[in-house]
């Protein structure tokens, strides 16, 4: 197997004076994988992402991103292998124009003007922000601002993307745009590690889910299996992911794919209609 894009080896981390937040945690993420990180508030999910891109150094163990030991590598080198979307979009915006914001990382990386321009244009197009290129980031709405941080990441063009609650501010249209981008990146071999509380979104897009609790990864597997933990579910019976739950409730084969469900439901409806018709004739 090829070298993983991200690997944690027996990593421990704790804030000063507090009990360790993470203890002997190991995990790897390979190229082309889209992994979701779930867990309760305060379980250390955001801390794990910060460790992954070298913003925090582990107190024990070793974190390597794109083959670089995060403890030793310089920020400029790390920024070429790992990019981070922070939970609060406002905190990472630093330029007065959308276009400059997207071009920030490539410019800092010392790329040529034409390359910067090409990357910026591509990122703005992928996020449907081209028409806002000259707007001030603070004049965008919350969903667009989130897309802007995504565009900045796209322009940074790193093999490992760390996304902290990327879907929170999106409406239906923006979410569809984001999922389309995600699908393209997965097939292009980008490694993505994201935090999300939207388990339907996770089930649709992430074939692998990590459940973080008690300082370590307590479950690592496909969404259906990992998300089933009662600690992750709310009080309602429509347990997320909701589409497989619905399938089980009405006796259809469980799926997270909308088209598969629709086809199965159509068949079920037609069979029932035929049945009642034959009954009527009898």
């Amino acid at each position: 197997m090829a070298e993983p894009v991200l690997s944690f080896e027996q990593v421990g981390y704790g804030w000063d004076g507090a009990p360790p937040l993470l203890a002997s945690l190991s995990l790897t993420v390979a190229a082309g994988e889209c992994v979701a990180l779930v867990g309760a508030n305060g379980a250390g999910k955001s801390t794990l992402l910060r460790l992954a891109c070298g913003l925090l150094a582990p107190s024990d163990g070793r974190v390597s991103a794109g083959g670089l030991d995060t403890r030793l590598a310089r920020p400029s080198a790390l920024a070429r292998v790992a990019g981070m979307m922070f939970q609060e979009a406002e905190r990472q915006l630093c330029c007065g124009r959308v276009r400059d914001e997207v071009a920030f990382a490539p410019r800092l990386g010392g790329l040529s003007a034409t390359e910067v321009k090409r990357r910026t244009a591509r990122a703005l197009e992928a996020t449907a922000l081209a028409s806002h290129a000259d707007a001030h980031p603070f004049d965008l709405n919350a969903g667009e601002r989130r897309l802007l941080t995504l565009a900045a990441l796209i322009a940074q063009d790193v093999p490992l993307m760390l996304l902290d609650e990327p879907t929170r501010d999106f409406d239906a249209v923006q979410l569809a745009l984001f999922e389309a981008w995600l699908a393209r990146e997965k097939s292009a071999g980008r490694a993505i590690l994201l935090i999300s509380h939207d388990y339907d979104f996770v089930a649709r897009n992430c074939p692998r889910v990590l459940h973080l609790a008690g300082g370590g990864v307590i479950a690592d597997g496909p969404p259906e299996q990992v998300l089933h933990d009662p600690a992750l579910q709310g009080d309602s019976p429509g347990a997320a992911p909701t589409l497989p739950a619905l399938c089980r409730a009405i006796g259809l084969p469980p799926t997270t794919d909308a088209a598969c469900f629709d086809a199965a439901w159509r068949v079920a409806c037609e069979r029932r209609a035929a049945l009642s018709k034959s009954r009527g004739e009898a």
Binding site: G238, A240, W265
Partner: peptide
């Protein structure tokens, strides 16, 4: 269509739209 919703609710919307 303009809002976010869980997959189960959205499935209900599609079923209603498809007259199922």
């Amino acid at each position: 269509p303009a809002l976010t919703a869980s997959d189960a609710v959205r499935a209900a919307w599609r079923s209603r739209a498809a007259d199922l």
